[in-house]
Nucleic acid binder design. Structure first.
Lengths: 216, 216
DNA sequence: AAGTCTCCGAACCGTACGGTACGGTTCCCT
DNA sequence: AGGGAACCGTACCGTACGGTTCGGAGACTT
């Protein structure tokens, strides 16, 4: 058994894998291949050629192809950044716009071609390999975002701006109102309608409806 | 070029493909393989062995592997049936329970292992083959359901039970409230929580929130 | 300058799978 | 009964790709 250079099973979710600059360049190339070609376009030989590295280095760095895929997911997850929420609760109005900004950022991430490509990859592999990629994407992506969202909503409740029993439930509703079935349609390859591309408007509409349900 | 026995591009979406009984049995075997093994588990040799048919017949019936996958999707789509809506608008209360029943049926379909497997398959292939499978699933599955839902909501509006401008928008909200992010999490391989498995309760909650937003 | 480490490039191997060809069998039709 | 179509089972071929190995070139250390 070759030395597993990147083993998600033993690495803690919040520990940054710290890829070397050279490795990050290679992972970026892998991401590009993946975005415009799907999984089958990402072959070890193809990546080595594109990134001007040797297959030997790939196997040394990432263990095997699965390790490479996992590394790509982890790398991209580490790139996603959300706006901070400094001073977001100054008054009710700015809090609502802050929530809308959060939702808009969420839509921006989920609808980006990179995110879609990685979701497609993870979903395609979800009934093999004991599903490492799906878990990785959930833990490093969705659950992180969910935690931040719950935190934000709890803040709103503490300030008497929102009213709900369970923050997770409330976030789920906000997510549903914002995403609807657009995500799955995009994953299936349908193009977004012009209205759906106006993320700001979509976010504001969703937050408006959310306030109808959970506003204090 | 072999004769394409099943070409989705030239067949109208509402024309039933009419598979022979023998072919349906084979497609059912293919579906089973797909459900508990993912795409890579569905090989022509494996299917021929499982279904006790020859590879030659597979290629004769479905043209090539893509045609087989398309046939599986079309076959499963033809199997999905929704409850009729006879006398659903007798009075406001039964209409709401009818909507809830529709949503529950929708959840039942989307969260079934067969639907999940086919969605995973289509999504995994969505950036190859000019995306035939995704289109097929959308046209034969989602869009059909969406049309029925819009029809139902329009009926409610005509009877003064609901209030909205665009039926599609309203349906999207209903969908979002019902599905939230459960679908994508299931697609990624996460197991549903006990609460999420209570489809009836989930549907009623979603419809309740929907009425808060769109009830007359 | 010699030694060592890293990495590139290329050749190579094994395997899995899509697709084809062919002989033998069953079943229907006349 | 006889002929033909459909079909099963299997052997076979070509290819694509994951993974390994090896030679050699630069870079860094001492």
């Amino acid at each position: 058994m070759p030395a597993a250079a990147f083993d998600i099973a033993t690495s803690r979710p919040d520990a940054a894998p710290e890829f070397s600059p050279r490795q990050q360049v290679v992972l970026q190339h892998a991401l590009t291949l993946l975005v415009d070609g799907g999984e089958k376009a990402l072959t070890t030989a193809g990546l080595a050629r594109t990134a001007s590295c040797s297959k030997e280095s790939l196997y040394k760095w990432f263990g095997d192809r699965d390790g490479l895929l996992a590394a790509v997911v982890a790398y991209q997850a580490s790139q996603v950044q959300f706006p901070s929420e400094a001073g977001a609760t100054a008054d009710p109005e700015t809090f609502q716009t802050h929530v809308a900004a959060f939702v808009e950022a969420l839509l921006g991430v989920l609808f980006s071609e990179t995110s879609l490509a990685l979701n497609r990859l993870s979903i395609g592999q979800s009934n093999t390999n004991s599903n490492r990629l799906g878990q990785l994407l959930l833990v490093r992506g969705k659950h992180m975002i969910s935690a931040r969202a719950r935190n934000m909503l709890e803040t709103g409740r503490r300030h008497g701006l929102l009213k709900f029993d369970d923050a997770e439930d409330a976030y789920q509703v906000l997510y549903g109102l914002a995403i609807r079935d657009v995500h799955i349609r995009l994953l299936l390859g349908e193009a977004a309608s012009p209205a759906e591309k106006d993320l700001k408007a979509q976010a504001e509409t969703a937050v408006g409806q959310f306030y109808q349900l959970f506003g204090a």
